[in-house]
């Protein structure tokens, strides 16, 4: 189809330009960092240059440590975020759709929301010991709240006319939940997930620092404790990259295939005021 070719071509070119612009920001950061480290002349323990960090990265890859740490962290992260999301969505639905549950439990939820994860961690260690149970419990705790509050707001702002339309078409409660409420709050689930899954890194790092002997969080704290600052920075960069991958490879395509396609959210292109 020769007619479509220039169009497709334009699409790819556009994406390429967008990616190039995104990479420019990161490149500028690295160049400034390298220049800063070289010019300042401080010890690499105090302020490692990108080259030092790269060497640390290669060293750990060679020894096979990094792979093990990364896989351990990924496993904890994915399971924790998944369970935390389920808990967040579930509690939000219960609070948002049931008066009686809301009356009894809403104050409790608010109370626990204020108690930050670093306060819980020592208690979890006492209860569950050092290891996966403590880490996952902490992650669930960290992830669930932002999702819970976002989904609750989503339920409250969902136009009631959608529910009424479904009821007039004969929907049961379960059908209303599945066909109306859940898709209707998907934008809120995505927003809550973005915040919760971002917060999960905080939870993971401090949990691994205290309750684990492997993982990216362990690497970051262990590196700093052993004057291997370059290793610490490898851990930090991996966190940043992980999030970019989650965002670009999973969240964005998911949004494009759902809420964006449905017209529930707009794109930056549509919003741009010329």
């Amino acid at each position: 189809m020769p007619v479509n070719k220039p169009f497709l071509h334009g699409q790819f070119a556009k994406r390429g330009i967008k990616a190039a612009k995104g990479i420019t920001g990161i490149a500028v950061l690295f160049i400034a960092w390298q220049i800063g480290a070289s010019v300042s002349g401080v010890s690499s323990y105090f302020f490692p240059a990108p080259v030092d960090v790269y060497n640390a990265f290669r060293d750990m890859m060679h020894k096979g440590i990094l792979e093990v740490y990364l896989l351990d962290s990924l496993y904890r992260y994915v399971v924790g975020v998944f369970l935390g999301s389920l808990v967040g969505i579930g509690v939000a639905l219960a609070l948002g759709l049931n008066k009686a549950i809301a009356a009894v439990f809403a104050p409790l939820v608010g109370f626990f929301y204020a108690i930050v994860e670093s306060a819980w961690l020592p208690v979890f260690v006492i209860w569950f010991g050092y290891g996966i149970t403590t880490i996952l419990t902490l992650l669930i705790f960290v992830v669930a709240f932002p999702i819970l509050y976002n989904v609750l707001a989503g339920i409250q702002t969902l136009p009631i006319v959608y529910v009424n339309a479904a009821r007039s078409l004969g929907a049961t409660r379960w059908q209303i939940l599945r066909e109306v409420i859940l898709p209707g709050v998907l934008p809120s689930i995505v927003t809550g997930f973005r915040i919760g899954a971002g917060f999960a890194f905080r939870g993971l790092i401090i949990a691994e620092a205290i309750a684990a002997t492997s993982g990216i969080g362990f690497l970051i704290f262990d590196g700093a404790a052993n004057k291997q600052t370059d290793r610490t920075i490898v851990g930090m960069i991996i966190m940043g990259l992980l999030w970019l991958i989650i965002e670009l490879a999973y969240l964005r395509p998911f949004e494009r295939a759902t809420i964006q396609k449905w017209g529930l959210v707009t794109t930056a292109e549509q919003r741009e005021v010329q």
């Binding site: 136009p159 006319v161 959608y162 009424n164 339309a165 479904a166 009821r167 007039s168 078409l169 004969g170 929907a171 049961t172 059908q175 066909e179 109306v180 898709p183 209707g184 998907l186 759902t258 449905w262 017209g263 529930l264």
Partner: peptide, 30 residues
């Protein structure tokens, strides 16, 4: 409300996450 009384709303109330075909077949799906 019930399926015995069908409503055409002043502001349409089509579900944004369903195609036109799926919106029209929704009551039958229920």
């Amino acid at each position: 409300p019930g399926a015995d009384r069908g409503v055409v709303f002043q502001d349409y109330a089509l579900l944004p996450w369903k195609t036109v075909l799926d919106n029209v077949g929704l009551g039958l799906k229920f």
